[in-house]
Design a protein around this nucleic acid. Structure first.
Length: 590
RNA sequence: GCGGCCGUAGUCUAGUUUGGUUAGGACAUCAGCCUGCCACGCUGACGACCCGGGUUCAAAUCCCGGCGGCCGCACCA
């Protein structure tokens, strides 16, 4: 497309928003003075406030009402963490390049497609083995028929070394989740040993994407919001479900996706669970909450859907996954959150790799008493028989299964404890009363995970309106970076001085206020509309007489007149949705 | 990563084909005047050829490389 053709095409919403975002300071590509670097964004003065307000709204929506814990762990973590989590193995792509046309392919995908190998088969093979398979089967480039060159591993985690001299590998976390799992032991203590509980992290994550595009939608460094919700798999019920059970969800199920059905089915949360469409109650609960949250950001229900991940699309840790998708004008359906049932995968892995027991404990309702057979070593016999290895023998015997020991004695007259031959005279098998107060288990995890930067873009796109040829960002009022503008009607006759008094008072009340006396009053309103400032407070000649001001509504451009004295109380109520615009004063007839 | 197109003030753009004066305009911003409620007007100011190399007397313009953007392919666990 050449330039004039590009010009012919009307700007789409993404371009309009990008332009506005740059011009008014919401966000822009980072490091522009050095030519920019793809996949990194800087949030400007307005954008960082908007983002923080969205995240604070998230806190008020997901964290506070349910007593979830918010923590902040490090972005860089030792290699071990991601070996255990499976990311080192899964977060990379084996690539192979055609030596003729230079196109690149995923080696495993090529083998799956042209050698009929399955996902699980290719997963087991090393890079070298994958390359060997390509050679052995004489697979050529599917595009041009050329020969494949060498294959290379592309790790999509950012790698570094920790400390100046050590070779210790560290990775930038590709998700905040692992920072929660590795701290589970302490968090479980914070929860005073009770399940269920959830932990949230809002922080940066790094993914070295091959080719990020789409502005703030796909970044190499981004803000992720991960909730890890821990529960007892034997008690998977969600007591809060009744609050959301009649919410409807638009689901695109995996089975329908396979059949090529693109229309979502609309079911209530209750139906989805009863029909087994969603496996875990907590997952359904968080999905309903997420839908609601996005509505609060300005996205109507019919612009949202949940799409179930197919087996091979799911991450290595997930047994069921839904992506919450939002319709965006430029790209169609875009993922804003992922909802995965991670089971006990992560805790189990970290237990295995660290050797630390991270199981939860639950007491039985009643004390369980039962008799149990135990193998008890007779020390006076073992000592003389095994001398200096006796203590090792004792350890081995104590851990032995009494049933096995018994049958071995019966069948062969001895029992091999490791390399030691234990005779019946060395031990006695006794019955012992044991009291079982409870049991240990690894909790299961439901993970809702949100892209914070995407939510900023989504909020902008859904707020973007045109009114009489000018741009109005109709943010939900509590998201607006600037809450109100205060303007002197004209910049003379003492009006600016009076306006500054009102400004100081509102700042002191904790509002985000913008003072503007440049240009005409109409221009100031327009400037304010363009960044979504919900209210415009204008000081005019009448103010000097009776201490009243006009308040203008961003969306309707209607005005009311109100006493300065009562403003703080009214405005606080307004931003907490306790009163509406018309309640702020006497309507001015225009 | 590959291929195609592209890169000029804060933003949008003219100029690039055919190298040549002080790189032009609009909007925005700032200052002053004006201004009694929706981007008013007047005057002025600030402000740009993505980076590096090459060709040439001379490069925004031509060539090479890099970086960045858009589209398509691939990728987005």
């Amino acid at each position: 497309m050449n330039r004039s053709e590009q010009r012919m095409q009307a700007q789409d919403k993404f371009e309009k928003i990008s332009e506005l975002a740059k011009r008014r300071g919401f966000f822009w590509p980072s490091c522009e003075i050095y030519g920019g670097v793809s996949g990194f964004m800087t949030f400007g003065p307005l954008g960082s406030v908007l983002k923080r307000k969205i995240e604070d709204k998230f806190r008020g929506f997901f964290i506070r009402p349910f007593g979830l814990y918010e923590i902040e762990s490090s972005v860089i973590m030792p290699g071990k963490v991601f070996e255990a989590s499976g990311h080192v193995n899964h977060f990379k792509e084996p690539m192979i390049e055609c030596s003729k046309c230079k196109r690149r392919f995923r080696v495993d995908h090529v083998l799956q497609e042209f050698a009929g190998m399955s996902d699980t088969e290719t997963e087991k093979l090393s890079l070298q083995e994958l390359a060997n398979e390509i050679n052995k089967r004489n697979i050529k480039c599917p595009e041009c028929g050329g020969d494949f060159g060498e294959s290379k591993q592309f790790l999509t985690m950012f790698t570094t070394t920790i400390g100046p001299y050590s070779g210790a590998v560290g990775y930038g976390r590709p998700e905040a989740a692992q920072g929660i799992f590795v701290e589970f032991k302490r968090l479980y203590e914070c929860a005073r040993g009770k399940l269920p509980f959830g932990v949230v992290q809002i922080g940066h994550a790094l993914r070295n994407e091959i080719s990020p595009r789409q502005g703030p939608i796909r970044l190499r460094e981004f803000t992720i919001i991960d909730i890890e919700f821990f529960f007892d798999p034997e008690d998977p019920r969600c007591p809060l479900l009744k609050d959301v059970e009649n919410e409807s969800l638009r689901l695109i199920l995996a089975e329908n996706k396979l059949k090529g059905i693109k229309e979502p089915v609309e079911v209530t949360v209750k139906e989805a669970l009863n029909k087994g469409l969603i496996k875990a109650e907590w997952q359904a609960f968080f999905m309903a909450l997420s839908k609601h949250f996005l509505m609060k950001l300005g996205v109507p229900e019919d612009k949202q859907r949940f799409i179930e991940k197919l087996d091979w699309e799911r991450a290595h840790y997930s047994v069921q996954g839904f992506d919450q998708e939002i319709f965006l004008e430029r790209w169609g359906w875009v993922e804003v959150s992922g909802h995965n049932y991670r089971t006990n995968y992560d805790l189990k892995q970290h237990m295995e790799f660290s050797g630390v027991d991270m199981r939860a404990f639950k007491e039985h309702e009643k004390l369980v008493e039962r008799e149990e057979a135990v193998v008890s070593p007779i020390l006076s016999k073992i000592g003389p028989a095994f001398k200096d290895t006796a203590s090792e023998v004792v350890r081995l015997i104590s851990n032995a299964n009494p049933k096995v020991v018994k049958t071995r004695f019966k069948k062969q007259g001895f029992y091999m404890a490791g390399r030691f031959k234990v005779l019946p005279e060395h031990v006695e098998i006794i019955r012992k009363e044991v009291e079982e107060r409870g049991k240990h288990f690894i909790p299961h995890v439901i993970e809702p995970s949100f892209g914070s930067d995407r939510m900023v873009y989504i909020a902008l796109e859904y707020a973007y309106k045109m009114k009489e040829d000018r741009v109005v960002l109709s943010f939900p009022r509590e998201l607006a970076p600037i809450e109100m503008g205060v303007f002197p009607l004209v910049s003379k006759d003492g009006l600016p001085e009076k306006t500054k008094q009102v400004y100081e008072m509102l700042i002191d009340e904790g509002f985000n206020v913008d003072y503007d006396e440049s240009g005409s009053i109409g221009r100031r309103y327009a400037r304010a509309d363009e960044v979504g400032t919900p209210l415009g407070i204008t000081i005019d000649y009448q103010t000097l007489k009776d201490d009243t001001v006009t308040i203008r509504d961003r969306d309707t451009w209607k005005q009311v007149r109100s006493k300065i004295k009562g403003l703080p109380r009214l405005l606080h109520a307004f931003f907490r949705y306790k009163v509406e615009f018309r309640d702020l004063g006497q309507l001015i007839k225009s």
